[in-house]
């Protein structure tokens, strides 16, 4: 069953097209990563999905219902975080959730305590939200999105402000929700590793346009392996690769590391050539094509993510 479907979804602000004819089709229970640079159109897309802003053109259907026509009914089945979650700073976390739970008026309610514990917050904590860390606010935001047991979670940069442990915990939680509760997750992010580790399928949005959709499994299968070497003289190695082996597709990384593409089968030859030219090779590894590489190729590395 299709959970989210957009057709030619477009949003213009004046002459600027923030989202440009985006077509998405996301299955129920799927974890969909929506990847893009800052300003690519991710948040605008989520805002349109939640009815916060109307599309200029096109349509959004959630569970087959048009968001513009049945917004109130659809929102009962959706939980979301849009940008940095805001809360009433003068209230505790529990009081904040109490407001949203009661407004939503949903009958399928998890208790506030259960939800807060699920995201690793203490429901009895008397701390006012204004004193929460960014990570705690993010967790509270997830808790708020989960309150009415939604079937779809729309999360805009959900790991913003979380420390590494928090990110791991969040990843675990999101996987659990998708698997055990068959929740559909639409996860926007500009952090490639986050999407790579969570999503079943990734859509890449660039300058408002959906430029690619690929399943992570497909990416792994399709992904050509590449070599990563760490040497003492990277500029000399680049010259040798070009002149001796005719290899031109490579990227220089930090700490004298070089990624060499479309040459994974030539690892022995490359190593031999480097040794012959007295280059010290500290590491030589065969690696699989990453989402990062795929993303940079598609967006031509125009902007850092």
């Amino acid at each position: 069953m299709i959970a989210i479907e957009t057709k030619n979804l477009t949003k213009s602000f004046g002459s600027h097209r923030a989202v440009d004819r985006v077509n998405l089709s996301i299955e129920q229970g799927e974890i969909y990563g929506f990847l893009g640079n800052n300003g690519a159109g991710k948040t605008t897309t989520i805002k349109m999905m939640t009815g916060l802003i109307p599309p200029t053109e096109g349509s959004i259907k959630i569970f087959g219902e048009d968001v513009r026509k049945s917004k109130q009914e659809i929102l009962k089945r959706v939980g979301c975080i849009v940008e940095t979650p805001g809360f009433f700073g003068n209230l505790t976390g529990q009081e904040n959730l109490q407001i949203y739970l009661r407004i939503s008026g949903s009958s399928k309610r998890k208790t506030i305590e259960e939800t807060m514990e699920l995201v690793g917050l203490d429901p009895k904590d008397p701390l006012l939200v204004r004193r929460y860390s960014l990570g705690m606010k993010q967790r509270l935001g997830i808790a708020r999105a989960l309150l009415n047991q939604p079937e779809i979670l729309l999360l805009d940069e959900p790991t913003n402000g979380l420390d590494p442990l928090g990110i791991r915990g969040m990843r675990k939680l999101l996987r659990l929700l998708a698997k055990e509760q068959r929740m559909t997750l639409f996860l926007s992010s500009h952090i490639l590793t986050e999407v790579e580790q969570l999503a079943d399928r990734v859509g890449i949005i660039h300058q408002g346009k959906l430029i690619d959709e690929i399943s992570m499994e497909g990416l792994r299968k399709q992904g050509s392996a590449y070599l990563e070497i760490q040497v003492d003289r990277p500029s000399e190695v680049l010259r040798l690769l070009e002149t001796e082996l005719g290899i031109f597709d490579f990227t220089v990384k930090a700490e004298n590391r070089i990624e060499i593409f479309d040459a994974a089968e030539q690892s022995a030859r490359i190593n031999q050539m480097l040794v012959e030219h007295h280059v010290e090779v500290y590491q030589l590894n065969r690696k699989e094509q990453s989402l990062e590489r795929h993303f940079i190729e598609l967006t031509k590395g125009e902007k850092r993510v």
């Binding site: 805002k47 939640t50 009815g51 916060l52 917004k71 109130q72 009914e73 929102l75 009962k76 959706v78 979301c80 849009v82 940008e83 940095t84 979650p85 805001g86 809360f87 009433f88 700073g89 949203y100 407004i103 939503s104 008026g105 935001g141 708020r144």
Partner: peptide
Amino acid sequence: SKEFEENTLKSTLAIPVR
């Protein structure tokens, strides 16, 4: 202005409330 100042309006309006 409270919901604007506290940045809560997005979350409030994303809940089915008129």
